[in-house]
Design a protein around this nucleic acid. Structure first.
Lengths: 153, 153
DNA sequence: TATTGTTATACTCTATAACTATA
DNA sequence: TATAGTTATAGAGTATAACAATA
């Protein structure tokens, strides 16, 4: 799996597939890391977003940031709320919306997973130098801006 | 979404998350590209693997190459076979196994999607130069080798 | 009229374990 | 005993459309 499972003749395609397969593998280890506290990466993404946000987020905010439809955000939050990791609170001035807030337990869990996750990340990313980290950031950012254009077409 | 939705203080983590979010976006466009012929990226991965393979593949081969459990390969192939895109044929000398082969229709579909996919890839990857393609390939390969080590721990 | 969130529906994928047939 | 594939099950994510309450 370090090598791509297929051979490609053109480099742009190979580069994209290389990103793709890397993320597929990332997904495999992430599943291990998040268990047993969380069921999925989607749940982790939500908790991290809530943790890092400097202001309260609505379900709509989460939907836009995570590219997940609002109808599915409802279900994701239901499961996390049921586990006691977050709560919906009323928004003053807009009775249609909720602010999503981590509970104390939610904060504990996300911090714990973040540690576990960060240590796995360190071990993985030790393969690369500081310059290579920078390069990878800048290259994938370019890929994303290509994707944005593609999405707009 | 060109910018990561969260700010990170350390570069290795940022680099990994950048790969992660890029793949999340890739997944979004891939869903568009595969429809209506295929239901998922998992199905496309199987067809591409079959197309590129230079020898017949068994379900076990697919399972190992795609990191998908063999029990789930069964279901994936069932759906693709039902659509007439592939067939299971007996393997001479091992009555436990099947060789999975694309049908004429399967070949037609994978070629069609591959074209659609390739043209989207080109448009996305035009953002990068030839040298950058090479760099991205080599960097993500390093990340994968880090992941392999992590998986072995 | 537009927006926020919910409900309903119907697939698809995934993880796990127990099972059959064959090697 | 080990291996290839199937079956069964339950949980989780996704896409889509219709809906209620509020703005």
């Amino acid at each position: 799996m370090v090598e791509l499972p297929i051979r490609l003749n053109d480099k742009p395609h190979e580069a994209l597939m290389s990103v793709w397969w890397t993320s597929l593998m990332l997904k495999k280890i992430s599943t291990k890391i998040f268990q047993p506290e969380l069921a999925s990466e989607a749940q982790f993404n939500i908790l991290v977003l809530l943790k890092e946000a400097h202001k309260p987020l609505t379900q709509n905010d989460l939907s836009r940031k995570l590219l997940v439809d609002k109808s599915n955000i409802t279900g994701l939050l239901d499961r996390l709320e049921k586990q006691g990791l977050l709560v919906r609170t009323n928004v003053e001035g807009d009775r249609r919306s909720y602010h999503i807030e981590l509970t104390r337990e939610g904060r504990r869990v996300v911090n714990k997973l973040d540690k576990r996750y960060t240590s796995a990340v360190e071990s993985v990313m030790n393969e690369l130098s500081a310059e290579e980290h920078e390069a990878l950031i800048s290259l994938t950012k370019k890929v994303r801006s290509g994707i944005i254009k593609q999405l707009e077409e």
